[in-house]
Design a protein around this nucleic acid. Structure first.
Lengths: 188, 188
DNA sequence: CGCCAAATTGATGTACATCAATTGGGGTGG
DNA sequence: CCACCCCAATTGATGTACATCAATTTGGCG
């Protein structure tokens, strides 16, 4: 959809679908900094007229585009827009700091457990889909979200499966068998 | 100043000094999620009337307190306040995501290097103090900011010193000898 | 001068990364 | 409909960066 560093063409209010926002280093290391879905504003905030993050659709996405240039002026004349924006960014910040905690302090299986309850709560709150939970992220993408490698993520899934906390269904979905124990593991 | 989970008494606009905002798990693991200083709004955003983070002063702090309850109503009737808030939170989010990248992808010495350029830029931009740079954080606090242990932080400092990139002056200050090489190490 | 907390440095352990091989599932063409 | 392919996922073997445990050293301050 857009790449970090590009001049801002516009911002996207997601109507349908899921997108991952990320930053990548010169050597290719990537950090997914947030999962956005219906209701979220994508590509915002920007810095000096350039996107801060890259946005990649994880599913088919429908979005409403806003002109990046008129946006600032429009905001300063519409209180309700400004307040909505505060809400949107506050939520992003809340989730980002939560994930700093996750990445900085939790061990691999705790991180994966946290990821699962986060995604589960996110999807159900936005009415996307239900049990079994379809992730829409590959192991590699989950790894780049959690600061791990795809192998370690896979091993954590296997461990949670062996503990009977989750069940792996098909390639891209999990059934949460023991919500309470998963939350405990996630340190929420 | 305030503890995560407490009912919000008020928000604090920092006039002078430095404060660390953090979250801690039940088992004591702590993540410092941001360093705030003059101009920043502390204790904001909150969630359901309770502080999201704990705030600890790293130096003597002067701050202007705002009533937490009137704040929301006041915002929705003052566009300029709402816009200023968007600016403040956007900046916090920008720094938070940068640090997700740092914690999730960089190696220990890269993290410490990044911390040093971040602090250096932060302090000079807010006219706090200059070379040699006084950190105002202990090794333990730096560790909790970067998702490392204090020993690893100390070793990284020693390594940077041995590389002649920085010099350690006194207990709490560093002189940046090779700014360019430090930035390269920091992956900025 | 001597105390105490913080920092440094060393020795060892371990969780995760890396390298490598195998398996499995979904889609396409025979 | 089955065989085949291909990419993602799993699993295993080994390496390594950082954590942990432990002992000094340093520096600020009464």
């Amino acid at each position: 959809m857009y790449r970090a560093g590009e001049p801002v063409r516009g911002f996207y209010k997601i109507i349908k679908g899921i997108v991952a926002e990320s930053r990548t280093l010169d050597d290719g290391r990537r950090q997914i900094i947030g999962i956005r879905t219906v209701g979220d504003l994508c590509g915002y905030p920007a810095h000096k007229g350039r996107y801060l993050f890259s946005g990649e659709p994880l599913t088919a996405v429908e979005a409403c585009a806003f002109d990046g240039h008129r946006f600032g002026a429009f905001m300063s004349s519409h209180v309700d827009l400004a307040c909505a924006l505060v809400e949107d960014i506050s939520d992003k910040l809340k989730r980002a700091t939560e994930n700093m905690m996750v990445i900085g302090q939790l061990r691999s299986t705790e991180r994966v457990a946290h990821f699962l309850v986060e995604i589960s709560e996110l999807y159900t709150s936005r009415h996307i889909d239900t049990q079994p939970l379809t992730l829409h992220l590959t192991r590699h993408e989950i790894a780049d979200y959690l600061g791990l490698t795809l192998e370690t993520v896979s091993r954590s899934f296997s461990k949670l499966r062996d503990m009977r906390v989750i069940a792996l269904v098909g390639g891209d979905a999990v059934a949460i068998l023991d919500e309470h124990r998963l939350s405990t593991l996630a340190n929420v």
